[in-house]
């Protein structure tokens, strides 16, 4: 299919694709939310780090990640394109603002979506881009074995020694004793100079704890989740409608499921920064 043909897809097909990509994202959100809950485990980040490690290294996950990224881009791109197409359909606008009772989530979908995109960039800056090593920041971790193995005989600089000593002193060793965590960017760079082959990973557990101890960041994230909620409130029901699965008999059920899903995802996301923040207050 060439470009022209894609652009000529019928309005329903475009909408179908939009919904299809959106559905992937909906599923992903649930997954992401569940993963986040590991942060709440009171194990100093063992479980979460293990999970992050798996996610960062597994081949299938990497493929899935690419698909997901594609979904994001296509979902956003299509939404933008449809919006652009629809813009000219009412050349002269009404003088009076509409007083029709409508599904607010859908009416605001474009706005909530655009807002999401902006917030998402910040979120990516905090986490995802760090993972991709596009942005440097937050905390890092490294497997101690790898250090030793990568550089068994080499002299280690004094600086590095101090870093390691300090880390051990501050109990920045994982409970299995196999990795160093909670390393600051500076520490990581010092170590990296000494152990060029060691593979450092971002330590999202501690990064999250760090960020979520600051009230305005927590607030920003809560707003973010609210907007996510607004958007999927529209998305869930709309997906059924667009896939033609809305039927008199089930429409109420779909509505209820949509609301439940929306609350689960929103609360599931919100509980992490809130708990971390409260914990930090107590501490």
């Amino acid at each position: 299919m060439n470009n022209e043909k894609i652009l000529k897809l019928s309005s329903i097909t475009k909408k179908l694709l939009l919904a299809l990509f959106g559905t992937f994202l909906l599923v992903f959100l649930l997954f992401h939310m569940v993963a986040n809950l590991f942060i709440l485990a009171d194990d100093g980040g063992d479980a979460y780090s293990a999970f992050c490690h798996f996610m960062g290294t597994n081949m299938f996950v990497k493929v899935a990640e690419l698909v997901l990224l594609g979904c994001f881009i296509l979902h956003i791109g299509l939404a933008g394109y449809l919006w652009f197409c629809n813009r000219g359909k009412r050349p002269v606008r009404y003088h009076q603002p509409s007083r029709t009772k409508t599904a607010k989530g859908s009416k605001l979908a474009m706005i909530s979506g655009s807002l999401l995109l902006v917030l998402l960039i910040f979120h990516f800056y905090d986490f995802y881009f760090v993972k991709l090593n596009v942005v440097k920041g937050g905390h890092y971790m490294v497997k101690t074995e790898e250090f030793v193995l990568s550089n068994p005989d080499q002299e280690v600089s004094e600086e590095a020694q101090i870093v390691v000593m300090k880390a051990i002193q501050d109990q920045k060793v994982s409970s299995d004793g196999q990795s160093l965590r909670d390393l600051s960017l500076e520490d990581k760079e010092i170590l990296q100079q000494n152990f060029p082959d060691a593979e450092f990973e971002p330590d999202f557990y501690n990064t999250a704890h760090d960020k979520f101890s600051v009230w305005h960041i927590v607030l920003c994230y809560l707003v973010f989740f609210f907007v996510v909620g607004l958007h999927i409130r529209h998305g869930f029901e709309s997906a059924f409608q667009t896939f033609g699965l809305n039927h008199y008999k089930y429409s109420r059920l779909i509505q209820i499921l949509g609301i439940i899903y929306c609350w689960i995802v929103c609360l599931g996301f919100a509980v992490v920064p809130l708990t971390v923040f409260i914990k930090s207050l107590i501490a």
Binding site: S11, I12, K14, K15, L82, C85, N86, K89, R90, S98, T100, K101, T102, A103, S106, K107, A109, M110, H234, E237, S238, F240, Q241, T242, G244, L245, N246, H247, Y248, S251
Partner: peptide, 23 residues
């Protein structure tokens, strides 16, 4: 234009035709 599932059509239809028909 295309549908964005706001159902304004359903709300204003004088014969109250339902969105399920679009589905």
């Amino acid at each position: 234009g295309s549908c964005t599932n706001t159902y304004a059509c359903e709300a204003e239809c004088p014969k109250q035709i339902k969105r399920q028909n679009i589905a």
